[in-house]
């Protein structure tokens, strides 16, 4: 564990908590892409299958349980409890265009051709593009509530901090995982234009408005 990975995990935790607060407090999931939340639930389910078979630390297990529970809980809140507030019209990104290519790629590009390894690889590839429906929805609605932009900033920062963690582990542990690194870079790059808008607008108290 290093400070970058801890900061990344805490940023990820903060993002999920911000999202849950937003949905619970406003009793609405307006502006949130249910499709991205479904993809995140798939990412955690396929990645944390070793939850019971491969104990790493109490921290690791606790975070995995929280991420699994909160992502499935968010899907429940969006598609069942607050279904009436879910914005179907703007959440239209075709997620099969994300699921199929990442599934095929995980069968071809992986460290080991075993079920667990391929599912982990699929989860890594899927996570790198899972935010696309959400970013697409923000571009379609042309704006986002400030709490939603804080959620996106924390979520985008988490994998960016993981890149620093991978640089740290390469130099100090001689360790690197090219699949996680490439996917993590793609994932972080997808947030760049949002990061620019967040820093130039939201931090100045303005609402996140995308140029129409």
């Amino acid at each position: 564990m290093n400070i970058f990975r801890l900061a990344g995990d805490l940023s990820h935790l903060a993002a999920i908590i911000i999202l849950l607060i937003k949905i619970w407090k406003t009793r609405s999931c307006a502006g949130i892409s249910g499709r991205s939340q479904v993809l995140f639930a798939i990412v955690f389910i396929t990645r944390y299958l070793d939850l019971f078979t491969n104990f790493i630390s109490a921290y690791n297990t606790a975070m995995k349980v929280f991420f699994l529970g909160s992502s499935i809980g968010t899907v429940y809140l969006m598609y069942l409890k607050f279904k009436a507030t879910y914005d179907h019209n703007h959440d239209t990104f075709r997620i099969e265009f994300l699921l199929l290519p990442t599934a095929l790629l995980s069968l071809v590009l992986n460290h080991e051709f075993s079920v667990m390894e391929i599912l982990w690889t699929f989860s890594i590839y899927l996570e790198s593009v899972a935010i696309l429906p959400q970013l697409f929805m923000v571009s379609k609605t042309g704006e986002a509530e400030s709490i939603t932009s804080h959620y996106l900033f924390a979520l985008g920062s988490y994998r960016g901090l993981y890149i620093l963690n991978w640089i740290y582990r390469y130099y100090f542990e001689g360790f690197y995982d090219i699949i996680a690194i490439v996917a993590g870079c793609v994932q972080t790059i997808l947030y760049c234009d949002f990061f620019y808008l967040y820093i130039t607008k939201v931090l100045k108290g303005k609402k996140l408005q995308l140029p129409a």
Partner: peptide, 10 residues
């Protein structure tokens, strides 16, 4: 040898 995949990470 260094592990090839980062399973200790979240």
């Amino acid at each position: 040898s260094t592990p090839t995949s980062s399973k200790d990470e979240l």
